[in-house]
Design a protein around this nucleic acid. Sequence first.
DNA 1: CGTTAGCACTCTATTGAACTGAGTGCTAAC
DNA 2: GTTAGCACTCAGTTCAATAGAGTGCTAACG
Lengths: 341, 341
Amino acid sequence: MLSERQRLILTAIVDDYIRSAEPVGSRSISKRGDVTFSPATIRNEMADLEELGLLEQPHTSAGRVPSNKGYRYYVDHLVTPGGVGEQDVLKIRTFFAEKMNHWEDVIGHASTILSQLTNYTSIVLGPEMFSTSLKHFQLLPLNETSAVAIIVTNTGHVEHRTVTIPEGIEMDDLDKIVRLLNDKLNGVPFFRVKSVLYSEIASELGRYVDRCQQILAVLEQSLGDSHDPRVHLTGAANMLIQPEFKDVDKAKHILDVLEETAKLSQLFTSAPGGIQIRIGTENAMAAINECSLITATYSIDGQSLGTIGILGPTRMEYGKVISLLDYLSKDIAVLLSRWYK
Amino acid sequence: MLSERQRLILTAIVDDYIRSAEPVGSRSISKRGDVTFSPATIRNEMADLEELGLLEQPHTSAGRVPSNKGYRYYVDHLVTPGGVGEQDVLKIRTFFAEKMNHWEDVIGHASTILSQLTNYTSIVLGPEMFSTSLKHFQLLPLNETSAVAIIVTNTGHVEHRTVTIPEGIEMDDLDKIVRLLNDKLNGVPFFRVKSVLYSEIASELGRYVDRCQQILAVLEQSLGDSHDPRVHLTGAANMLIQPEFKDVDKAKHILDVLEETAKLSQLFTSAPGGIQIRIGTENAMAAINECSLITATYSIDGQSLGTIGILGPTRMEYGKVISLLDYLSKDIAVLLSRWYK
DNA sequence: CGTTAGCACTCTATTGAACTGAGTGCTAAC
DNA sequence: GTTAGCACTCAGTTCAATAGAGTGCTAACG
């Protein structure tokens, strides 16, 4: 347990370092208004904090820098979110007032706002289809061998892919089957579709055609693998602003990872709701071990739909980002629920 | 008009500089196998080439560097494309052998390959919808006020957006109208859809409903603005490899522009077919005035569909990139035509 | 007359030494 | 317990000297 004074000093150091990106010395802290002790006293406390592993020293004659553990303590006990500025709220309002044609536009806009307001990189996961239910299923033949399968969810989300039609299937049969599927599957949540498919419908399908195995294959083609949510990445170039990444090689490693958007979604191991913060090496990927990732989930009716997040250096404006993510995740929820209600 | 020897020397300088990114001196050229003159002779020629504006000198005691004009001469008269390596062909083969669910997957894969094989940034414009024709149009009501409009082209491309249904329209009417539209518009090329809409159909619509104005509005909502093609950007981080962009600020400017994918498509002022090369300041955007952009269009049946391109430093491996783009654009055409035929 | 060797000159980049300044740890006094 | 004072450490900066790459010019050569 830290003393009140230690907490005060740790806060001062972290705050200063977040602003300046330079090691913080005892003198500069004592000159701040909120700390009344002499540099010598502060030095003693800093030595203790270093022994506890909360601070680090780049070299003997430099000031102190928060360690990962120090940041962890800071976000767990010291940081004060402070709310979202009036200016920022206004920007968000005007940005979301724009016309949006797709579900995904909301998500994309959110991503842009996040990176603009923070000057960090924003990563936003679109709603997973599996948390919604099927509204409409359709197979549109293009020619003898292939068709476009279109799936619409109750939220207005559209998925589509080109599928191969097995030989020997009649158009009429396909039509019947699609109609049957729409009857049976309408309103069924996606995570249950497959089981319903096999338990209730597989038998009925037998009545219409004998080649039902192949039909099911087409269905699986249509539904399968649609698991990966859309990833919106904005402001990747903002990484280059940070002094810690002024070294081009470091920056490249990070940007390389960011480009593989598919892998990014793995970073977002489903948060238990609310804000989640991963500092430095707490992140699974080695390439971003000098970054912190803060995420928040947005949800409708308690059903968590997706995640918005900010990636920046460990020296990140935690308070500001937390407020913003909290605010925006709720905002998105409102927007989306209005969207399809 | 340059002498044969001048051309030889210019080629040598450009090739060397492309490899090394360092000013090329007379000595290093004379040591190459293909040039048999002494450094002094080469120096004389270099002075002439500089006077012609084809070469530049960073400072008095440095070697020569090609100017934009020099690159221009090089690509116009000197470069030999040299073909695509066996290895590369193999990689392309295996990459395109993967399963692809959408039209766009082909484009996305092409973009990835391009950046991987060149270590530059690839920009690929998906096929513009307007060069295809309407296969199917559908309005799927989500609730009382909004619906999902789905458009499928003859190539299997799917566009969708959420539209607002004007008040006072009956579901039945909508159904009839959609059916009518499918009858009339099936097979109509997109660039003619609007005119057909107004000339042939507007009158007929009057029979079904009196509020045809509003219906047309919905249609325009569905069709309108779908002009902008999908832009695939891959390997943006590769810019950081280039020594000319080791300065983080320079790199940031470029990456910032690259992030606004919408604006990127403006760089691709429709090429007259074949390969197009823009060197340095020939590019409209100031931010990429130290870059070269090489593009190739891919087309089916003479109908140009989209563009693939490579963005790199002006010091770019022109020969290799030209070969690759030429090869890949034809490959894409084959793949796509097989896709929907 | 075109080509080449030689040489003086220019300019950048590198090296290393001296210096500066921020910051610490420790000790002794308050 | 707190603070002033002081010796010490170490990165960063400045400056001059040096090395090296390359040029332009002149004169000689075939």
